[in-house]
């Protein structure tokens, strides 16, 4: 589904990604872990189409198509979704209306019929229930004054509503309390199927207990230095990153 080959990216002549290779197939869950500032969010944002980063080398394909020249919205139309590490506050736009517009515009771009209002309402109810979101919440301004955990849960709610093919979850777990983490993980598991894929960025093993990855990648200083299975996450939790850094040096 997603293929990232030898991706180099920089901002203001500072190289952040230094040759990332990553392949995510339908039905898989991948986790990316790595120290602060190693480039995880940068990678996620570049896949989603952020153009403040300059891709200097390499390529990104999605279902066989080169997407590196596409706008963020065009990537979204193809089914790429980014759950932000820091969701942006948009005062004056309600959660419901935002999602309604997002679905409408995506359908329009894909030359699909508008979603009937009744179907939309049903979907909203279903997904809000799935993520245990109070309906009152949905009429509030998008992310404005939301607590850290509420913002994250709202990201996953949008994800559930948009039903993407590739979901990139950038540190969705930071900010969520223990119960909320379980609810969100359960919700994401429900959305998972053989046709879609999930890329989770996390610092902690906890989320991965509920959302079990097929692969765990370690990104250090702009490069994936190690790929393993879920056991690698446990190892990191115990030992930190130093041993990997040592391993890489030698």
């Amino acid at each position: 589904m997603l293929k990232v080959k030898n991706l180099h990216a920089s901002v203001d002549d500072k190289e952040i990604l230094k040759g990332v290779n990553l392949e995510v197939n339908a039905g898989e869950v991948h986790a990316i872990m790595g120290p602060n500032g190693s480039g995880k969010s940068t990678l996620a944002a570049i896949i989603a189409g952020k153009d403040t980063f300059e891709v200097t080398q390499g390529e990104i394909t999605f279902n066989g198509e080169d997407i590196s020249e596409l706008d963020p919205e065009e990537r979204a139309h193809k089914g790429i979704f980014l759950s932000f590490q820091y969701p942006v506050e948009i005062p004056g736009v309600s959660v419901t209306n935002f999602i309604k517009t997002a679905i409408k515009e995506t359908r329009r771009a894909n030359e699909e019929e508008d979603m009937p209002a009744s179907e939309f309402l049903k979907l909203i109810k279903e997904k809000a229930d799935l993520l245990a979101i109070d309906r009152k919440f949905l009429s509030r301004s998008l992310n404005e004054g939301f607590s850290g955990g509420e913002k994250k849960r709202n990201e996953i709610f949008q994800m559930a509503m948009m039903n993407p093919k590739l979901s990139i979850m950038d540190e969705t777990d930071s900010g969520l309390d223990i119960d909320a983490l379980k609810i969100v993980a359960k919700g994401v598991n429900k959305l998972k199927n053989k046709d879609n894929a999930i890329l989770v960025i996390t610092h902690y093993q906890r989320l991965l207990e509920h959302l079990v990855p097929d692969f765990v990648h370690i990104l250090i200083d702009g490069i994936i230095v190690k790929t393993g299975t879920k056991e690698l996450a446990y190892e990191l939790e115990e030992k930190g990153y130093d041993w990997i850094k040592e391993e890489v040096k030698t």
Binding site: E73, A76, I103, T106
Partner: peptide, 12 residues
Amino acid sequence: ALFYIRTRGIAK
């Protein structure tokens, strides 16, 4: 904010 909105499929 623009980038955030665009990642939801809403054009520039």
